[in-house]
Simulated scan of single mutants.
Amino acid sequence: MSFPPTTTPHAPARQPDTWPALLVTGGCGFIGSRFVERWRAAHPAQPVVVLDSLTYAGRPENLAGLWGPALHLEVASITDADAVRRVCDQYGVGGIVNFAAQTHVDQSILGSLEFTHTNVLGTHTLLEVARERGIHLHQVSTDEVYGDVPAPHHSLETDPLTPRSPYAASKAAADHLVLAYHQTHGSSVTVTRAANNVGPRQHLEKALALFATNALLGLPLPLYGDGLQQRDYMHVDDHCAAIELVLRGGASGGVFNVGTGLELSNRRMAQLVTQALGLPDAPVRHVSDRPGHDRRYSLNTDRVQALGWAPDFTPEQAVLSAARWYAANRAWWEPIRRSEAFAAYYERQYAARLGAS
């Protein structure tokens, strides 16, 4: 295990549980809401402020039962500097965990300007406010910033960033800004780059959630290309646990890859979904691939393991657990499937592909 000389894995322990308040941006989304849920359980007396613009993927009901005197919702965009400053000052924010982002590759191919606006300008806005007020910023990033990774290499935190989709490019740009603020201004920052997350409350545009709900509705599962793209499917709880560790002990300026180190093909993921649902005959339909589809992601996770992290789920276990959640929680996802917005997206993204398959 080796680390570049200017970025060590360990640092004197940060004490986020003593901050007057924690700001979680994008906290009504998939990963953000799970992080808030876990953090509130561990720190019930510490105020947490969720700042979320409540786009199609941000749902306050993801935190149902938790809203109260120690959990506050502020509806605003991370690109709104005045709103971010007001929230930080009003609650005495000591740290920010930035989940807020446009995240779906297919959506970024259909229209990418929103991705630049939120993911780049929004992160830059948070960095400015954090710099002004001496607040620690944790940036939640993705393994997609490394681009396509030929086997047998596992991406290191020091590897060049070579994104190949507008989404990945916007996240790579945000990472560069975060690390530049550390170098130029001495800002206190940390970054995690995570593998594909799966678990409860993931929006239905993402592959596993789409496959599970399609199978439950008796619809075909649209699998891009030959389905042999390799991914590390990680349970969302494992990702959140890693962020918690990095918040406490990760060196400022440090980047930490988070994944299981194991890979599944997308075809195998689809098979596991139908197995978990007891629907092994659900039709998998190979459809035309997305443009610039990365063939493989794989992460070296020595750094985060050096902080004491290890995943509780293998990719197979994470996929099975997530698929079963959709079977048990139709009341959560059926309104999304019935919505005009999702119907329009599904028609635009899959109708022609499925018709041609």
Results as ranks from 00 to 15, higher is better:
residue 5 P to M: 12
residue 9 P to I: 01
residue 10 H to S: 11
residue 16 P to G: 07
residue 25 T to M: 04
residue 26 G to F: 00
residue 26 G to A: 03
residue 29 G to A: 06
residue 30 F to T: 11
residue 32 G to D: 04
residue 33 S to C: 06
residue 34 R to H: 12
residue 46 Q to Y: 01
residue 46 Q to L: 03
residue 48 V to G: 01
residue 49 V to Q: 04
residue 53 S to P: 12
residue 54 L to W: 12
residue 55 T to D: 15
residue 62 N to P: 00
residue 63 L to R: 02
residue 63 L to A: 02
residue 65 G to W: 02
residue 67 W to E: 04
residue 71 L to M: 10
residue 71 L to Y: 10
residue 73 L to I: 05
residue 75 V to Q: 12
residue 79 T to C: 14
residue 80 D to Q: 11
residue 82 D to L: 04
residue 84 V to I: 07
residue 89 D to Y: 02
residue 90 Q to K: 14
residue 96 I to G: 03
residue 96 I to A: 02
residue 98 N to A: 05
residue 98 N to V: 02
residue 99 F to T: 01
residue 101 A to L: 00
residue 102 Q to S: 08
residue 109 I to H: 05
residue 128 E to V: 11
residue 133 R to S: 07
residue 133 R to C: 06
residue 149 V to Q: 14
residue 153 H to Y: 09
residue 172 A to M: 07
residue 177 L to E: 10
residue 188 S to D: 13
residue 192 T to M: 01
residue 206 K to R: 09
residue 208 L to S: 00
residue 216 L to P: 12
residue 222 P to A: 01
residue 223 L to W: 00
residue 226 D to K: 03
residue 227 G to R: 14
residue 228 L to G: 15
residue 240 C to P: 05
residue 241 A to K: 04
residue 243 I to T: 09
residue 245 L to K: 06
residue 249 G to C: 08
residue 251 A to K: 13
residue 259 G to L: 07
residue 262 L to E: 15
residue 262 L to C: 15
residue 269 M to L: 15
residue 282 A to F: 01
residue 284 V to K: 06
residue 286 H to E: 10
residue 287 V to E: 03
residue 295 R to G: 13
residue 297 Y to K: 06
residue 301 T to K: 10
residue 302 D to N: 13
residue 305 Q to E: 14
residue 307 L to F: 08
residue 308 G to H: 08
residue 309 W to L: 02
residue 314 T to W: 00
residue 317 Q to W: 03
residue 328 A to L: 11
residue 332 W to S: 03
residue 332 W to Y: 12
residue 335 P to A: 15
residue 338 R to L: 13
residue 341 A to H: 13
residue 343 A to C: 11
residue 349 Q to G: 06
residue 351 A to L: 13
residue 352 A to I: 06
residue 353 R to E: 08
